[in-house]
Design a protein around this nucleic acid. Sequence first.
DNA 1: ACGCGGGCTATTGTCTACAGCAGTCAGTAG
DNA 2: CTACTGACTGCTGTAGACAATAGCCCGCGT
Lengths: 252, 252
Amino acid sequence: MEHTAGSSVVGAASAHAFQQPPSLVDMAAEALRRMIIGGDLMPGDRVVENQLTKEFGISRPPLREALRVLEREGLVRQLPRKGTIVTPLTLHDVYEIFTLRWEYELLALRLALPVGPSPRLDRVHAAVAAMQAAADAGDEPEYGRHSFEFHLSLVALSGHHRLEEAYRSLQLQMQLCMAMNRRARVDEDLQQDVGRHRRLLELVEAGDRAAVEHELARHGDRTFLEGIEQRLAGHTEVALAWLAQVRGTVEG
Amino acid sequence: MEHTAGSSVVGAASAHAFQQPPSLVDMAAEALRRMIIGGDLMPGDRVVENQLTKEFGISRPPLREALRVLEREGLVRQLPRKGTIVTPLTLHDVYEIFTLRWEYELLALRLALPVGPSPRLDRVHAAVAAMQAAADAGDEPEYGRHSFEFHLSLVALSGHHRLEEAYRSLQLQMQLCMAMNRRARVDEDLQQDVGRHRRLLELVEAGDRAAVEHELARHGDRTFLEGIEQRLAGHTEVALAWLAQVRGTVEG
DNA sequence: ACGCGGGCTATTGTCTACAGCAGTCAGTAG
DNA sequence: CTACTGACTGCTGTAGACAATAGCCCGCGT
């Protein structure tokens, strides 16, 4: 396989040794996800197939299958006979994504609590530990990844695979949102944030539903949502109302 | 639905004239969905690509893309290097599907209420009318389709596209469940069922959340769930507990 | 008789090539 | 100078062929 120029993304992955080499589709899908949530491709950008085949060193059929997957995940949108674009986001989309996320987490924890000793809990603890390590190292991207894993493993406590999968898709879309504002966010205190997560986990282990819900409510997003309505179109009534309400509860 | 030999399914569709001809991928995906929820393919059955290309009269690339879509919808499961099978269902899967459905509907109506006059309400009314017509005609399959459309349009009242899409996927999986027991169900009184739906809609229009929730709770599924644990593996604790609880509330 | 290895077949994974539509830009007429 | 029409370019949609792997059956050896 000698695509010297372009084999970067996929080629690198296959070089890293997989016991069961994943299909080119999976690798292309993963590479695309990283490009999108990493900000290399911005919402609204065209995704040209031939261009990516050269970049990945693969042919079009597997790439097209990967695009179909990404579409069902909500990261791209395919316009018949016109091509593929990275999903453009409106304020209403942000409203949808964050309301659903909230409901998913709430539902998952309602189903999970009370939670006995379980390997699922180990996964959450591992995520917290990784967050702590990343915070100590000051590695913010790494911290973000483990933070997502924390919340995902929290949802997984429910033992509800479909819910977990839905939440995973939603996380991708959240990362798409966040790719739009690659600014600030350094003012966040990672150590403090780790503390919030750790406290949340303790409440989960204690089985205190009300406290968990309360902690979740004040758990975040406000720094991200700072002035977001200036940067996005699609100001639905419900979206604006939601935004105001979120900011209101933040103050309280 | 008999796929006589050649280009039956897809060919027929393309012959019927589409203003904007959908891609073969879309048509193949739709044909596959019908085959699966129609019971032509049962959970666990292998889905052989070449076989279907001959049946549909298309080539493998679009079919493979369609399979990727169906996998993200949860109707099939792709095992790397081994092929594709129709998603096998356990009792735990049924538990997941029905709990999520309940939560989706509840969330959607919570977001939608109170609902002012809107074209979205027209859609619900149209669904009820279609149900009534099908009930009068005694056309049970048609009735079932419009019943699904009723619930989907109810969810759509929320104006939450992602929620609507998630609910649509879930409906497909519910139909997959129902494809497993193609028995009885005739004892249902369609007229009475129409009445239940109509009453639910009235409560929605009245904006009475508590009453809506109460009506939803006693809205169904028990005939379907009759003795389902005998026919399925995967008896998780939570699934059994859920089943018992559902049957408990039914009695009440 | 039973376990094991080698070849075979069926099926999936991938690539190259061709057909057809969409948007664009130049050229021309008014 | 503007509006319309035509070909052109690039892209997507689809087909068919090639490569590689997994399961299976048969024959062989113990």
